[in-house]
Design a protein around this nucleic acid. Structure first.
Lengths: 225, 225, 225, 225
DNA sequence: CATGAATGAGACTTCATTCAT
DNA sequence: CATGAATGAAGTCTCATTCAT
């Protein structure tokens, strides 16, 4: 048992070291970007020798990818259940918005990193071969969002807009809000902003638009030709 | 006059070369990102010697900044007049959307570059001290958007949402759409998507929301639990 | 203890390597001057990779400065005690001369380097911001020399000449002699030359000046013919 | 004649341009050192195109050499006549001292440049193959000084010291003084300092040494231990 | 001769990665 | 596993020099 305990302790120690490295690397990558952080810097900050880091990760890219994957999976595990639940479409979207905010609140550094490398569909531009998992997660969530929206359209709950447009717009808008709050570090304002996004998203910005049934609405004048 | 002509030709040639370099650099930066493009690469692609590039730009950063500034100013000069026109607020926002699309169509590489470095309010993260002009342009447009929206709110045209939220969301959504189209290189779909964004943005996605006068609004039904 | 030993060996090895680099760099700088020696050259000569040198020194300038400072401090530690001793002024100056020669003999390359960058009061011309320590050392020694001379003047030992002139002249003359010997690599001649400098410096060159007294004087014994 | 005049004007213009370039280059070299001045800098300062400079001088080295040679010859033409005159040895040396000062006064930049590259016998170290003429001039003057001193020794005017030592010491001391004055830009002090150098050099610094016939000479008292 | 854009070798420096201890 | 000195490819930038106009 002593053997086992020792092995176990080793195991735990190893895991702890690994976590420390990942945390430091995540923080630095989020702060300065992949190219502006050196392995020596990560090693110094994590208080390990460079070689130690290479015992855990094959390369700088691998370390980065690992982090991205981890974050991506955290996000996915939190958000996916909501989109796959039995709730109706409107509730799913509302839940998505709430979950996105939550994810951000819990680990802003991680999310910041994640968003940085995955802004919209351009994830693979420039950052190249990094973190396919992260891209996959983004695609997965987008797909789910589209499906939810399409379902809502079929049921007559949602208007007949392009689901791709809607899902992209929602995702992008959420990120923008989340980031703006992140920069303000004004925590209290987040609640209100989320509410506003919901208002905007769920009803639209034109008072007249949904208020009076008779309104021809300037917007509706522009037909699809 | 021969002197003058000669000088003039020199001048023109120099300008042409400069433009060639800028174009190549813009393309490469947009494709691969600042850190993944070397000056060697730019020089080779532009078919100049490295030194020649340094005769035009003091450093790689300066070249990048120059490009960013140029693009930023192009965008600003196109979009600002619309937001500062005498049209009513709704038309201004509609014009903004249309202009954004137009700007993108005219020089997608440039815009792609611009957007890459200025995604939302996080422009200054990582890319650091690059292109303050670009950041300024973003801020300027955001400010104008907010003012337009606030004015619309006061006139009762728009609902009383936080202007910051609305302007951020609109901007972010537009970018996302523009990018998604950029990746598809499916030009025809752009029109339709823009129309959808307008529908989404101007009326909201909930059918019931603007359809029935009596509806208390689905969104408000959803309690915050 | 094994740990400690290992660390210690590493430490020692590192120090040894550092010394090797410094020695090679000193030799090359002394031979060819700062600008005519490349880091490549230093690395090759020291049989290290370039990066290794940069693990020890932040820049070429830093390496140069380090060397200069080291040499400067060596000189200072050897010469200063003499000028600050309790001996009378004449003995101090004689000691200064002897010590200068000694310093040179012990590490000619180092001194050559030191002198090259510090010839007279023009140390700061051209070589610019390099090695303030070296300049300081020169100034320190000059100051001490002046004080010693001034003291001698007050006591009536020395003639009432401008101490600045005397100290500069002595220093410059010594350097010239030392260098001329360095070029000859004629070691034996040094002794004689030093004696002559002393004769010149302490009594003057005009026969009449010290002549009548019948002094045979050691110097006059050596016929020059 | 028109032809001739034109040719002559051309000639004169050319000479004028050449002089302007040389003057600017001399100033810059003297201020910052050979390696810290670029041809582009010289061209800009002289208000010529780079190509123009290369029409006059084959290379940067050639330009430098040219300047050094010019300065060297100026010095030589001024000082040599004195050392080759019919005056007695003491007067020759006094004349040398006075002439050295004069040369400096007339064109301090030039001399500063000259001295910088020719400090003592180490002229050829580092600056390498530059300006053999300058080195030759130095050697020529040293040779003449030695001959004068040796002659003085033979005639019993000077003490029997090593002429090489004396000539080196005199030269070095003069330079040091000249430079110290150059840095002070304290013109008035020069006269006094020169006088002091003469006092020092011609009689020696020990009062007792030449004053009392009975003095055994302090210097000779100091045994070599 | 004057011009100055173009050239490219070469200098300095960084940093991901290896490997012996 | 941990360590960290060593490595060297690759990148940025300078500047002497050329050459077509």
């Amino acid at each position: 048992m002593a053997e086992k305990t020792k092995a176990s302790r080793r195991q735990r120690e190893r895991q702890r070291h690994r976590t420390e490295i990942v945390d430091v690397a995540m923080k630095l990558f989020a702060e300065k970007g992949f190219h502006n952080v050196s392995m020596q810097e990560i090693a110094a900050e994590a208080e390990f020798a460079i070689g130690t880091i290479y015992n855990f990760f094959d390369s700088k890219e691998a370390l980065y990818r690992e982090i991205m994957d981890e974050v991506a999976n955290n996000v996915l595990s939190l958000v996916r259940p909501i989109l796959e639940s039995n709730a109706d479409e409107q509730e799913k979207l509302a839940g998505f918005i709430r979950a996105s905010i939550l994810v951000f609140r819990e680990n802003s550094a991680a999310i910041r990193l994640f968003l940085r490398a995955n802004q919209g569909p351009l994830a693979n531009i420039g950052t190249a071969h990094f973190s396919e998992t992260a891209v996959e997660v983004h695609d997965t969530l987008q797909t789910k969002l589209r499906q939810v929206y399409a379902a809502g359209v079929r049921k007559g709950t949602f208007r007949a807009l392009d689901p791709r447009v809607v899902s992209l717009a929602l995702d992008a808008a959420l990120r923008a809000i989340v980031f703006s709050v992140a920069e303000d570090t004004d925590e209290t304002s987040l609640e209100q902003k989320v509410t506003d996004i919901e208002e905007l998203f769920f009803r639209g910005i034109l008072h007249d638009a949904w208020n009076r049934a008779a309104s021809a609405g300037a917007a509706s004048d522009r037909g699809r030709s």
